[in-house]
Simulated scan of single mutants.
Amino acid sequence: MKCYECAKNGKDTDAVGICIVCGEGVCKDHLKREKIPDWDGEFDIKLKCIGESCKLKDMQPLLKILCMSCHGALVENK
């Protein structure tokens, strides 16, 4: 998978992660990896608890990967 942002700019860069919100592939230069608060939006996912990690308290504070666009929207809506 290639980085979506790089591809838009004519670059061919491998993605190192996938945005947890939009599913966009991102390289190390186009991602934010941090703890994120609950985010109620029009997405089908719940960021406070995902899949099997819901059952494991130790998994809750894991860092999440976001693309720059989704991170910007999250920060803007805090």
Rank of each mutant, 00 (worst) to 15 (best):
I36L: 15
R33V: 15
P37D: 12
K55M: 15
I65F: 14
G72M: 07
S69K: 15
Y4T: 02
C6T: 00
C3L: 01
K64D: 01
V26I: 15
T13E: 13
K28A: 13
L66G: 04
K11N: 11
C6K: 00
G72E: 13
C54N: 02
I20N: 04
T13G: 00
C22M: 05
G51W: 11
C54S: 07
K57W: 11
E52N: 06
C6D: 07
K57T: 14
L63W: 05
C27Q: 07
D44M: 05
L63D: 14
G51I: 12
I50K: 02
D44P: 10
I50M: 13
K78S: 12
S69N: 15
K32V: 15
G25T: 07
H71S: 09
E52C: 05
S53M: 14
K32S: 11
K48A: 05
L56H: 10
I65C: 12
E52T: 07
C19R: 02
I20C: 10
V21R: 11
L62N: 08
H30P: 08
T13H: 10
D29A: 13
E24W: 01
P61G: 14
D29L: 13
E76Y: 13
L56N: 12
S53E: 14
C67W: 08
L56A: 04
C3D: 04
C67Q: 10
C27A: 09
D14V: 04
L74W: 06
K48E: 11
K11G: 01
S69G: 10
K2D: 03
